[in-house]
Simulated assay, not measured.
Amino acid sequence: MSRKRGILVAIGAVLIVVVGGGAYAARGNVAYARVATGYAAKTTCSCLHVSGRALDSCIADFPPEAQRNVSITQDGDEVRASVLGVISSRAVYEEGYGCRIEE
């Protein structure tokens, strides 16, 4: 019985190390995604409301990889950009001031 328990403890420890290592390694990608969605939301908001261009025209300004990975939606004066629907940023247009990112 103690041999089985030892094996289970070892497997559990390995799983904890693997999950912890994966979370630690992914932290840089999460930070990058936050910056990327903020940039996409703000740039698209300014393109739409300050420059007066169409949404498709604004999205065409982004590199192909960003066009594939970042989802952009518009609702009135608000633009939201997200990656995988998990990490998102929102920019809002305010007359006289332009667009700003909101948390």
Score class of each variant (00 low, 15 high):
1 M>A: 15
3 R>K: 11
3 R>V: 10
3 R>T: 13
5 R>T: 15
5 R>P: 01
6 G>R: 13
10 A>D: 07
13 A>W: 02
14 V>Y: 04
15 L>Q: 10
16 I>Y: 02
19 V>M: 12
25 A>F: 07
29 N>V: 08
30 V>L: 05
31 A>W: 10
32 Y>E: 08
32 Y>H: 11
32 Y>D: 11
33 A>Y: 08
35 V>E: 13
35 V>R: 01
38 G>W: 01
39 Y>N: 06
41 A>D: 13
45 C>T: 02
46 S>R: 12
47 C>M: 04
47 C>H: 01
48 L>V: 07
50 V>D: 08
50 V>A: 06
52 G>I: 06
53 R>F: 06
54 A>K: 09
54 A>M: 07
55 L>S: 04
55 L>P: 02
63 P>V: 12
65 E>F: 14
67 Q>Y: 01
69 N>T: 14
71 S>N: 09
72 I>R: 00
72 I>G: 01
72 I>N: 00
75 D>K: 15
77 D>S: 14
78 E>Y: 00
83 V>G: 00
85 G>S: 14
86 V>M: 11
87 I>K: 00
88 S>R: 12
89 S>M: 01
90 R>A: 11
90 R>C: 08
91 A>S: 09
92 V>Y: 03
93 Y>S: 03
96 G>Y: 05
97 Y>W: 13
97 Y>D: 13
98 G>H: 04
99 C>W: 08
100 R>H: 11
100 R>D: 07
103 E>P: 03
